[in-house]
Design a protein around this nucleic acid. Structure first.
Length: 264
DNA sequence: AAAAGGAGCAACCGCACGCCC
DNA sequence: TGGGCGTGCGGTTGCTCCTTT
């Protein structure tokens, strides 16, 4: 890390910016010796020119033992998705279910991965609406054209035209329905539940478990919308999530990810 | 090969809330 | 009861690395 260029110090004179290995060492040694808490005094006692808040953040997000570094696994991603659907932006609560992950890490992950996907799904939705509009305009034009033709044919032909027109309308209705259906990607709705892994990472704190169990019991059985229990779905989704080229499978027709993935 | 742009991450800030003295 | 402190959260910034042009 290069110097402190661009960061400087706070009004109180606390250092800001990236932590140096020396600072990390000081903080780690101090916390190992005296334990967590009283962060403002930690800053002074450990000989660190950092605010208590900064020390706490550094410890919690980076130095604390047991932290898992590296990429979020598909299993973890599944848990994040589910828990976010349950609790929204309760990052610290979600983090309790992901041993070794911090709230900040999960928040960052969510913002970079799912906000992006949310955006792209909104784009898709916009595109579909646009297509539908175009189709309707086309339909109107055809209708007008057709009306013009009808006025010029015989009474016998009228019947035929009527029949054909009905067929045509039917066809157009079908086309419209197809347009209104979610695209195949968006229709890949399911839950990325990795049952064993979830249990493995289940918090020991019973109160935390109770907090969500009522909802989870039902929620995690929702393999599809029709009550069919298809565990292969989970595997499919895990596979899809690993495939970068696949669109995010939890986006609903409305473009709203949660409405698409869960029914409450 | 170099510049531009985007993604990802660590860290910060401000605010709110709860706890404790 | 009020102030200090710890914690949690959303939003943002600054930086590095990677990809695209």
């Amino acid at each position: 890390m290069i110097g402190m260029a661009g960061w400087g110090a706070t009004a109180q004179g606390w250092r800001k910016g990236p932590w140096t290995p020396e600072e990390d060492k000081l903080l780690t040694e101090y916390v190992n010796l005296h334990g967590e808490g009283r962060w403002s005094s930690v800053a002074r006692s450990a000989g660190l020119n950092r605010s208590g808040k900064s020390c706490r953040l550094r410890w919690v997000n980076y130095l604390r033992p047991g932290l898992k570094r590296g990429q979020i696994t598909p299993q973890e991603e599944g848990i994040i998705i589910e828990l976010h659907a349950l609790w929204g932006n309760k990052w610290s609560t979600i983090a309790r279910y992901l041993p070794g992950r911090t709230d900040n890490e999960i928040k960052n992950y969510w913002r970079t991965h799912f906000k992006k996907k949310e955006k792209s799904s909104q784009k898709q939705e916009k595109r579909r609406t646009q297509l539908l509009k175009q189709k309707q305009q086309q339909q109107q034009q055809q209708q007008q054209q057709h009306e013009g033709n009808v006025s010029r044919v015989s009474s016998h032909a009228d019947k035929t035209t009527e029949k054909l027109s009905g067929e045509h309308e039917k066809q157009q209705q079908q086309q419209q329905m197809v347009l209104m259906q979610p695209s195949i990607d968006e229709n890949q709705i399911g839950l990325p539940v990795m049952y064993q892994d979830v249990h493995a990472s289940w918090p020991s704190d019973q109160s935390v478990v109770d907090e969500g169990l009522g909802l989870w019991g039902g929620l995690w059985n929702l393999d599809d919308f029709h009550g069919h229990v298809d565990t292969s779905n989970c595997n499919k989704i895990a596979a899809m999530q690993q495939n970068e080229a696949t669109a995010f499978p939890f986006v609903g027709d409305s473009g709203n990810f949660f409405n698409g993935g869960y029914i409450f």
